[in-house]
Amino acid sequence: MADGTQVQVHSVTEDTELHCWYDRESQAQSVYVELGLSDGILLASYNGIVGSGMPASVYHGIDRRWSIPPLTADGANKLLAEIAPLAQRVLDGSDVEWDGRNHVGRILTDDAQAAYDAISELCEAIEPEDDAVLQVWSMDTIGEGWTAEEAGITAATTDEELKQIEVRLTEEFRDGMGFSAVVIDGLDDYLRELRDDLAAQAAENEDDEDEDED
């Protein structure tokens, strides 16, 4: 059995912390709750590996994972708090053993297995429309979204101002759709393209004026 290992909950601090969408990928990274059988760390995170790969510690059952939707900070922390006493029961009835080739995590008691199954049920019960779930949209889905004029963008808009505009538009979209939290992937690139197109057009017009003067 685990030698007195205690659960250590690592809290989520930002609403978008569990969201990651890598460039050129068709969807966001999967999200999970993880319990380390050797160190007792209980956390929520996204999978940093593209595709179906996993760390060796997960493959060998030392770190146990349960899939969840991307949650807001409050939603994730409430879930972790609910899981914590169950996770302690898992730790109390589990151990990391040498199987002759690798160290592997094993659940050794019926109570630990029951707690493990209860964690699975909690994670599987989260519905996509729950307020705790971060709503993920992309500009590919939204389409044009906003014109430069609607967004308040000009050829002279700075990168810092674009970040502020991105925050404002995301908040407006969130409130308009009735979500508690939302992220719009690709919005930053979309706004930058609007600004750059205006800047290129302004430069072209300036060149035309110079030619007319000559």
Rank of each mutant, 00 (worst) to 15 (best):
E121I: 12
D95W: 05
A155M: 07
G176F: 10
L187W: 05
L162Q: 09
Y116K: 03
K163E: 13
S138D: 10
L122S: 10
T158Y: 09
D159V: 09
I126W: 11
L169A: 03
L134C: 02
E172I: 07
G176P: 05
N102R: 15
T141F: 08
A155V: 05
S120Y: 07
L169P: 01
D175M: 10
A118R: 06
E166T: 08
L162A: 09
L162N: 08
R168N: 11
E171G: 01
E121L: 14
S120H: 10
A114V: 03
G143N: 07
G105D: 00
E160D: 13
A151N: 07
D159E: 11
L162M: 09
A148P: 03
A151G: 12
T154M: 11
M139A: 04
G100I: 02
N102Y: 15
E124V: 06
A151T: 06
D175S: 12
F179Y: 15
I107Y: 00
G145M: 05
E129C: 06
D110L: 14
F179H: 15
I126M: 09
Q135G: 00
S180K: 15
Y116P: 00
V104L: 04
G145S: 10
A181Y: 02
I142F: 01
G145V: 02
F179S: 03
D185N: 14
T157N: 10
L134H: 00
G145Q: 04
L134I: 01
I119K: 01
E172G: 06
K163T: 10
Q135V: 09
T154P: 09
L108T: 02
G178V: 08
A115I: 01
D140F: 11
A148E: 13
V133L: 02
D111Y: 04
G152Y: 03
